[in-house]
Design a protein around this nucleic acid. Structure first.
Length: 202
DNA sequence: AGTTGGATGGTCT
DNA sequence: GACCATCCAACTG
């Protein structure tokens, strides 16, 4: 994943954790209610961004994955920074600045905390992925496969060996009930430092 | 290392 | 009016 915001430095990261949400029958998916104003992008063309707000606080980035009419998306849950870690810190700080409601939040303290946050934790977890790359709901619709887009997906360098991938149940969807809570549609690179969850569980 | 609770607002019944 | 595809601080062991 790579951004191309006019001002350097660019931000580049390696996706190490994702979750799949497929079809109208998937009771964990936003598409479970059929097509609505919010989830309409999931019914759109593949390769585009679907960014939504969870828990009133955090935006999350999805990549639409199936042809138009067939709702599916992959949630990006963990990204290992390769370039521009400081730009990611800056993006997270900027977001915190927009959020301080009544000055309770001390921005200097947040800046200090971010400076002590290791690179590998800057985009660990879906809310942090969007924050680190400065993505918000308004970015929904961006073509992530177009090289001219401000943020895009790239294939890993051909020279790199393909890492092992583990499959586990998805996170935070207890409400969906079986079999959706059991199906192993969370995919991660075991041992990668930007995998989310307690102790980066696999 | 694991658990708990608060922040916060859009979406859907 | 309930329910979240979350994160973090502040605990406990």
């Amino acid at each position: 994943m790579r951004d191309a915001s006019g001002g350097l430095p660019r931000r580049v990261g390696r996706i190490v954790e994702v979750e799949a949400y497929i079809g109208i029958d998937d009771r964990a998916s936003h598409a479970r209610f059929g097509r609505t104003a919010r989830n309409a992008p999931m019914f759109g063309p593949p390769g585009h961004a679907y960014v939504y707000l969870v828990y009133g606080m955090y935006d999350c980035l999805n990549v639409v994955t199936e042809p138009s009419g067939s709702p599916a998306a992959v949630l990006i849950r963990g990204v290992e920074p390769l370039e521009g870690a400081d730009a990611m810190r800056a993006a997270r700080l900027a977001l915190a600045a927009t959020r301080r409601r009544d000055g309770r939040r001390d921005l200097a303290a947040e800046r200090e905390r971010l400076s002590r946050t290791p690179d590998a934790r800057l985009a660990r977890g879906p809310g942090l992925v969007a924050a680190a790359f400065g993505l918000v709901r308004a970015d929904t619709g961006i073509d992530l496969c177009d090289a001219r887009s401000p943020i895009r997906l790239e294939a890993a360098p051909a020279r790199e060996p393909r890492p092992p991938v583990a499959a586990t149940p998805r996170v935070g969807i207890g409400h969906a009930g079986p079999p959706w809570t059991e199906v192993r549609w969370r995919f991660l690179v075991p041992g990668a430092s930007a995998v989310s969850g307690p102790a980066g569980r696999s």
